[in-house]
């Protein structure tokens, strides 16, 4: 049974709603990455710079909430790794499946639950939620897809949920933004 041009191929449709790539980070949460993010955004929130404030409000240091995704991002290189190490494998699988060489993220939702703390070891899993039919934008022709990610700490506490909308595309001849 084949799919029409506006439909989602069966092999892709079969992945919708299925948790994929469950994995645990290869390193612990550490404060230095929070400070890097704070420096990159010139964020002086004393919750992250003043231990007395952190002790009072959060019972000790926590990670900057919007660093949630970085704890599951692989090292750029590590011994034994071959090729580019990517963070959101489902996104790259879809690029390859649809032969779409370029991609951008268009939407992001983050829901923050139990704060992430230095020393935590974060795990996640990726769930494909939807794939659109073929679309054309100013970037080129391709498809949109939505991927959810659930993050837990080593105590199995939910620390956050993210949803990304990605747009994989092929630049049209003479096109491009």
């Amino acid at each position: 049974m084949s799919s029409g041009p506006d439909e989602v191929p069966e092999d892709v449709a079969a992945l919708i709603g299925v948790p994929q790539y469950p994995s645990t980070a290869s390193f612990d949460v550490e404060r230095s990455y929070s400070w890097n993010t704070l420096a990159a955004t010139q964020n002086g929130n004393p919750l992250f710079w003043d231990d007395a404030v952190a002790d009072e409000l959060t019972g000790g240091p926590i990670a900057v909430p919007t660093t949630l995704s970085l704890w599951m991002r692989p090292h750029y290189w590590e011994p034994g790794a071959a090729g580019e190490q990517v963070a959101l494998q489902v996104h790259f699988d879809l690029k390859e499946r649809f032969d779409l060489p370029e991609a951008v993220m268009t939407d992001n939702t983050i829901i923050f639950h139990t704060p992430v703390r230095p020393g935590d070891r974060i795990s996640h899993r990726q769930v494909l939620r939807s794939v659109s039919g073929p679309k054309t934008t100013k970037l080129g022709s391709g498809r949109f897809w939505v991927i959810d990610i659930e993050y837990h700490n080593q105590r199995e506490e939910l620390v956050g949920v993210e949803s990304y909308t990605g747009y994989g595309y092929r630049r049209d001849a003479g096109g491009g933004a």
Partner: peptide
């Protein structure tokens, strides 16, 4: 994308102060 999220967080908590806790952003 994550850096944009961090800029939004900074913008919001500049306003709220450290007791402000972001629950969700889209």
């Amino acid at each position: 994308t994550p850096n944009q999220a961090a800029w939004f967080e900074r913008f919001l908590t500049d306003w709220t102060g450290p007791r402000g806790r972001v629950g969700r952003m889209t």
